[in-house]
Structure formats: structure tokens, C-alpha cells
Design a protein around this nucleic acid. Structure first.
Lengths: 339, 339
DNA sequence: CTGAAAGCGCTAACAG
DNA sequence: CTGTTAGCGCTTTCAG
């Protein structure tokens, strides 16, 4: 359908020289006369010549494409990370191909297969929620194809990773709650096998200990990250004989569902229950009361992941780096009483 | 860095036959014996052979890549459309490369250039907010490269487009406000040269006429789609001698900013001012009061755009189709008083 | 200083 | 039924 693009051959013919001369002229090869060189370049510009990446790819075995697999495209967290990756990729002249796994391990494997066939040069991946078995990643490693994980990670001894400081963040939230008068602090977690889920749980437990609060298992809820199951978890918390006076959740979806559930129960935030989330600026300030939350450096996470990726492209050896990005607790209305 | 992948040559050598025999065997060419055919396929499977897309691309001049350019990656509307495009693309064995223009016309042109160099087979584009000049699109058309616009469109006589029924939606909102008692209905629009901006404005005006309301220019505000400028626009409305009793905005960002501004002025939604937005389910139900809003079939819009794209890939001629997707006004708390 | 030829992986037309 | 050859667009020896 598409018109054929101009090739070196076209330029060579019009100039009455050989293809290799044109190739060299375009790249300022010392062997080519300055004059001829100019002539070649001018004609190339005129004809709008750009090298055919497939020919180059064939020759050099490089596609300049990065495969990015995320649980989903529409969650702000992921799209923001992607935009960070995209930024750095562009700087290196690479293209990003994004494939959503829809939180399905099967889909994740399929995506990897497709992208391998497309000959991406490597992968940047955030595990699907379902993924608890890592053979498909092992295969990537086996094939010596660059791989970086972010946020939800595994195989840390073999694969570079970027995560947020979940443990410290959760611990900090607990402290913050305590300082603001909460004594019955609850946490709505995600699936156990998710690394971040565990880290945040551990930070929560440590935070309780730090504050001299006793751990009560009823206050440790969990959900599958869907709004519905998060609402259920919240509901269970609210129906406890001694409902919590402060709740934080593993991510935005969970926290928004919790907020809605609390409101529907006729309770109010922060008067009855304080609330803190892991969110981004936009969502946190859109709701009322504005949400105190741990801000992820999402775009930065994408940039760092891409950075690790290009480190890998350059030198596959060297021990894999694990980078932990600092988060920041931004205090807003949802966790501060009185005033 | 990456290990060389197995090629037809490897298979041919191991089997002691020629490359073309292998090529044929793999594709069940009638010329090849059933037995040999099996042997070839088995070895191919064993060695994990997959055809090199660059070799194929070189030969057939097809990359199976679609370039998608959107104003930004992180807005829910766009990421949702992208996921719709991605779905259909996958069905056709195509990959999607997304490039954000960041609402900048320069960036948009740059993206087009880069993607053309990467030899994408065509484009699906949503204009940047800044774009009021279309030479870069004309070039795509000139080169006979498939192009489809969605949401923010131009050159409708040459390019297939998918949009929401902005006019009807805006008109419907106006009626809805009127039926619920509003008499001073305001609209916060976007830049004039955006098609959707205009359509919605026209729908608004018609809606006023339908209801026998007089148009008052003070109630027609506009902004540049940023939260800040939307807040300013809202503020101007609130400071009018006769502030509106109902407001709707061109998109989510605008509406959320308006909601926040109204709240900060000590007014309440919907008691003092009713509010309706163009949003998605998630955002509309996260805020309080829950937002009445025109639901875009966003994912569907992506699917339809991709559908048009593949129509184009198959037959470049034929008059370009313009598809208008029906929206639905979902009534929630922000626009209904009393009870 | 420049051209010819080989090769990256693959298909297709042409021989045998 | 199978092999040879040419060619997609490009770089890179190797000759001149």
C-alpha cells in the first residue's frame, strides 16, 4: 500500500556512483571526498532519505525496541511509569512497545513470547498479580536478553530491580497515624506473594512495635486489589467489635474503595477514621477530604528502570542492581483531625 | 549481547537440505513431502525457531507496527483508548508503538518523523491541543500511509475519524440541568480550534435554545485544559454578579478542578451549583458527591479507530468514514438536588 | 579515493 | 519433489 521509500540505491543511481560510496558519504567516511560527500548529503536530504531500520536491524541484529509489560495500561501508576520509560528510551533512540498482562500470568507469558518473536532487545516488566512462578522469566535470562523489573519484582539475585521503599513508607504511615492520635491502626494488604504487599505489611508491623501498639490480626485485612474486594475488606474492618480508627491501603484503588465504603457506612474521614493511601498527586487532591498519601516517584521509577535497562544493554555481566526509590508522605486532610 | 537466534540456515544444515526446502516445509508448501515436512517442523519446534521479522519486513516492506500519538499517556481517557487499540492490533498480529505529544505540536511532528523512520505501517492519532496547522498530516496522506484520527480530529474529508457525539451530549447535559431546576447554566470550554470544544459549545447553545433559556456570554467560559486554568475559569464564573447554578466542563480535568474550586469557595455541590462532567466510571465515583457524567465509550473508541485503521491497510481508496460513538449521561449525585 | 562482492534471514521465480 | 539464484537495504571487507 505504502509507496516505496528512497534507498541508497536511488541516490547512487541519480549520482552515478556506487551504493557503498553513498553509504560512506552519508557517514563522513574519511575515504570520501568532501565535495562528493556534500553532494550525497544534499541529495539525501532532498529525497528525504532515512535509513531503513529493518535493513540495519537485519545486519546488526538490533531492533531498538524495548518490550514493556505491565499489569494494566489504564492505572495511573503504570501509565506514569511508562511515560518515564518512554522518555529515557527516546533519548537512546529506542522505541517502547507496551503490552498489558491484565494481571494474568498466562497473558504475561504470551506477551513475552510475542515480543521475543518481534525481537525486542529486552524487557522492562512489572509482574502480574497472578504470577507466582517464574519460568518464563528464567527463559529470558537464559537467552541472555536484558530484563529489568519494577515495583513488583522477583529473582532479585539475577535481575536488576527498581522499587519504592515500601517498608519504610508503611512504617512511616503507622507513625504518622500514631502521632495524630490513632491507636487502632488497620492495613488493607494485597496478595501475599506480591513483594510490595509483604514489605508494606512488615513495615506496618514494625511501625506498630515502634509505637508500642499491640498487633491485632483483625486489623490486618487483605484483598485482591480490585475495588470490590477492597470495599469488602473495608466493610469487614468496620464491622469489627472495635473498628479501627485509622486505615491505610496498599494502593490507590484500595484506598478509594475504602473511602467510599466508610462514607456509605455513615462514618466520616478523618473524624471517625483516618485514611492514608499510596497514590499520586492528581487523585489524592481530587477527592474530598484530600488524601494524605505516600507519593510514588512514578515517572522517576520509569526513568530509573530504563536506565538500568540501558546499563544492561551495554554490559550484561556485573551483579544486578536493586534500586529503592524514596517515597514521601504528603500530609493532607484525610489523616489530620480537629483544627 | 543477545545470542543469535536460530535461522532457517541452522535447520537446513542440521537436516542436510537447502534453506528453501526448510522455508517451504515450514509453510506446508505442496511441493514438499509429508515426511520431510514433519521432520522440518519438529526440528524447528525443538530449536525454538521463529521467523525473523526483520528479514520478513525487509522482504515484504511490512513492519506490523502501528504508530499511536496521543496528547499524553497518563490521562485515563487516552490510556483507555490505547488499550482498545492494542486489543484489536494484537488480533491482527500488529504491535502498537505509543508516543505522547505532551500537547505540543512540535513534539507531535517529531513523533511522526521518528515513527515514519521506524517504518510504522500507519498512524492512529489524537491531535495535540496546540495543533492548528496540519502540514505534517498532509505529508502522511501524501505518502499514502494509513492514518486515522480519534477524538480530536481534522481533515475529515481525507482521513477516517472516530469521535464521541459531543454535540448531542452537551445538548443532553443542558436539558438535564434544566429539568433539575437549573436556569443559569454555564459551560467551561477548551481552546476554540479543538473540534470537540466547538461541538460541545454548539450543543450547549442549542440546549439552551431548546429549553427557552437565553444565552449569557458570561456563562461561556474557556480554559486551556490544565487544572489551573480550569480553576481560574470556575473562579470567574463564581464571581459573576449572578453566578451560575449549574456548570459542566469539557473533560474530567476541568470538572475536578471546578469541583475543588466550588468547594473552596464555601459553596456546595449540588445544593448551590450542579455539576456534570465528561468522565469515566472510575473517576466519577471516586469523588464526593459522585459525579453525574457523560460516559465515553473510551475502549470502544480505540477498538473502532483500530478497525478503521485495518480497513485502510486493506484498501486505501474509498471515501474516509467518520464514525460517531454514542455517549451516555449517567446521572449521579452531583446534579440532583433535594431528594 | 571508489567499486564490487558478500552477507544479515527470508521468499519466490526458475531450473532441474 | 528439491536446489539455485536473486533480491529486499544496508555495511563492511577486499580489491583496485
Amino acid at each position: 500500500m505504502v509507496k516505496r521509500r528512497v534507498s541508497l540505491k536511488d541516490i547512487a543511481e541519480q549520482l552515478g556512483v556506487s551504493i557503498s560510496t553513498v553509504s560512506r558519504g552519508l557517514r563522513d567516511h574519511p575515504d570520501i571526498g568532501a565535495e562528493l560527500c556534500e553532494k550525497i548529503k544534499n541529495l539525501a536530504r532532498l529525497l528525504n532519505y532515512t535509513p531503513n531500520p529493518m535493513a540495519m536491524g537485519l545486519l546488526k541484529q538490533r531492533t531498538r525496541m524495548i518490550g514493556v509489560i505491565v499489569p494494566d495500561l489504564v492505572t495511573h501508576f503504570f501509565s506514569s511509569v511508562i511515560s518515564g520509560i518512554d522518555e529515557i528510551a527516546k533519548e537512546h533512540g529506542y522505541f517502547v512497545i507496551v503490552s498489558p498482562s491484565n494481571e494474568s500470568c498466562v497473558k504475561e507469558k504470551e506477551n513475552i513470547k510475542n515480543l521475543m518473536q518481534a525481537r525486542v532487545e529486552g524487557f522492562i516488566i512489572c509482574l502480574s498479580q497472578e504470577t507466582s512462578e517464574y519460568s518464563h522469566f528464567e527463559e529470558i535470562i537464559e537467552a541472555e536478553i536484558p530484563l529489568v523489573f519494577f515495583d513488583r519484582v522477583c529473582l532479585k539475585d539475577k535481575v536488576p530491580t527498581v522499587v519504592a521503599d515500601s517498608y519504610e513508607a508503611a512504617r512511616g504511615i503507622t507513625h504518622h497515624f500514631y502521632k495524630n492520635g490513632a491507636r487502632r491502626i488497620a492495613y488493607i494488604s494485597g496478595p501475599d506473594y506480591l513483594g510490595i504487599s509483604n514489605e508494606r505489611r512488615l513495615g506496618y508491623l514494625q511501625g506498630l512495635t515502634d509505637c508500642g501498639l499491640e498487633f491485632y490480626s483483625g486489623y490486618l485485612e487483605s484483598c485482591d486489589l480490585s475495588p470490590l474486594s477492597a470495599a469488602d475488606a473495608t466493610s469487614r474492618l468496620l464491622h469489627l467489635p472495635q473498628p479501627p480508627d485509622a486505615i491505610f491501603g496498599i494502593n490507590d484503588t484500595v484506598v478509594f474503595a475504602a473511602m467510599k465504603q466508610i462514607r456509605e457506612s455513615g462514618l466520616s474521614v478523618p473524624a471517625d477514621i483516618m485514611l492514608v493511601g499510596f497514590t499520586d498527586e492528581f487523585h489524592a487532591t481530587v477527592v474530598h477530604p484530600m488524601l494524605t498519601s505516600v507519593m510514588h516517584p512514578t515517572k522517576e521509577m520509569g526513568r530509573v528502570a530504563a536506565g538500568l535497562f540501558f546499563d544492561l544493554i551495554e554490559t550484561m555481566d556485573a551483579a544486578p542492581k536493586s534500586i529503592e526509590l524514596k517515597t514521601k508522605l504528603v500530609v493532607r486532610e484525610s489523616s489530620v483531625r480537629g483544627k
